[in-house]
Amino acid sequence: MEKNLNNAREEIIRRSGVNPSKCMKCGKCSGTCPAYDEMEYHPHQFVYMVETGDIEPLLKSQSIYRCLSCFACVDRCPRGVEPAKIVEAVRLEVIRQQGANHLKAEGVAENLDEEIPQQAIVTAFRKYTK
């Protein structure tokens, strides 16, 4: 992943609209996160690592696909930091690159069953693919 990481940090901050320096590192976002057990980096770490410019591990981590976009961290952060927007901005940094879609159309058929709602398919594609 050849990227100017300093640039990536600015892009992530701009795109998310989040000011990571507002974070007081209380960990409440991670405490309330339903994806905690599946995420290598937790929401408060996303905020901190973006603040300090430690972006590369986030870009490489599967954590960006484990976040459920439930917005619990956004609602419960006492400082209004909105960590989910940082997670989304990092994911976009990855999937907006050429050929970096997380979901490929070819793989779709095997994920389908009789009952799966259209909503699941369109949302997964919106989140994982550009």
């Binding site: 795109r15 998310s16 609209g17 976009s69 927007k85 901005a89 976009l92 949302t123 919106r126």
Partner: peptide
């Protein structure tokens, strides 16, 4: 279709 999710990114 609404797309299923609102992408929070302002761009």
């Amino acid at each position: 279709c609404c797309g299923g999710a609102f992408t929070t990114s302002s761009d």
